[in-house]
Design a protein around this nucleic acid. Structure first.
Lengths: 186, 186
DNA sequence: GCTCCGTTGCCTATCATAAGGTAGGTAGAG
DNA sequence: CTCTACCTACCTTATGATAGGCAACGGAGC
């Protein structure tokens, strides 16, 4: 019960830092101080791991988004909190959103994982679209033309910002890449 | 001479579709109809391959940017041509910019590769910054606040758009994610 | 023109290690 | 006495990499 969650934690960290092909069952075993066969007990195949990984990530992330919507009243503060989530995920260029990392490896993953990847983007983009719709009403974000288009653009921008921060190995690069978004909040 | 370029072609395609860990020397050998040891003749270690790959990509990409600047007179048309480059690289979600793909794997690559990755982003962003500075003069792109910030944001947006197109497996997603950019051109 | 010799580009064969995965067993808890 | 969560031991295949050989080409010297 607890070991499984721990394995997922380690696997997530590995995948986000090195990519899904960048770690092995042996790596996982070492980091959890367990034998390789025991890792296979929890996740028979690596594809099972990929599915569990993304499902948990998806659920946790959506929870956080809901909690932001429940706490923050304006579109601007919701957007800033959203950026905080991606800033934290970037970890100064050391890490990436799991979905960004898995997208690259995609072809090696089972069908259901790629479907989950698409679902994650769909759900997060939908949440963002609601934020931009709220912005049209409360005016806390400047120049909102189409909430739908803004949501897709924002999603792309924060994921790209993670890539850039990683390439440069610096948190500053992430900030620079999202500055235009921050600058639009009132 | 020719085989080497061919190997680079195949390796680039593999890396951009499956990630750098997603193909082996054996895969390369098969696709070039050559023996595995012969691939090692051209690229002793996989790290040599990664370096050759990114150096070539960097050079070719910069050439294309220069050619755009030489051909297109306005900031708007330069930006649209730039987007064309990334649209083509995305290939309907089947592929990614090499640098995006390598950024994920980064930790497993030699130091010099990560430096090249940063250099690529620096050069492309600098080119974009010049485009947005031109836009301030010719007015062909709306609402340009800071050329520097716009360049970094645009870079992130197109790279993120590739990730989204890939996750969704659709070219439409790429278009949706860059629509806000296209919409700003006059 | 012909031999000599190095270089190029490929080959076969081989290796050590790492990878994903399986078989079968065992200690402890309920 | 069964189920959970782990173990040891093992297997197969893939992977990155090396050693050593061989045919073809090309220039240098006679």
């Amino acid at each position: 019960m607890e070991t499984r969650a721990q394995l997922l934690d380690h696997a997530e960290a590995f995948a986000r830092q090195r990519g899904f092909d960048g770690f092995s069952f042996a790596d996982l075993a070492v980091s959890a101080d367990i034998r390789k066969a025991s890792v296979h007990y929890h996740f028979p195949a690596k594809s099972d791991l990929s599915i569990a990984l993304i499902d948990r990530y998806h659920a946790v992330f959506l929870d956080r988004l809901q909690s932001i919507a429940a706490t923050e009243a304006t579109a601007a503060t919701r957007l800033l909190q959203f950026l905080n989530l991606y800033r934290a995920a970037s970890d100064g260029g050391r890490s990436l959103c799991l979905c960004v990392a898995l997208s690259v490896t995609q072809t090696a993953l089972p069908e259901s994982t790629t479907a989950s990847l698409a679902a994650f983007h769909r759900d997060v983009t939908a949440w963002l679209e609601a934020v931009f719709r709220l912005a049209e009403a409360d005016g806390s974000i400047r120049n909102v033309a189409s909430p739908r288009a803004e949501a897709q653009a924002t999603m792309a921008q924060v994921e790209g910002a993670q890539i850039m921060a990683r390439a440069a190995g610096s948190a500053a690069r992430f900030e620079a890449a999202i500055a235009t978004l921050v600058g639009r909040t009132v």
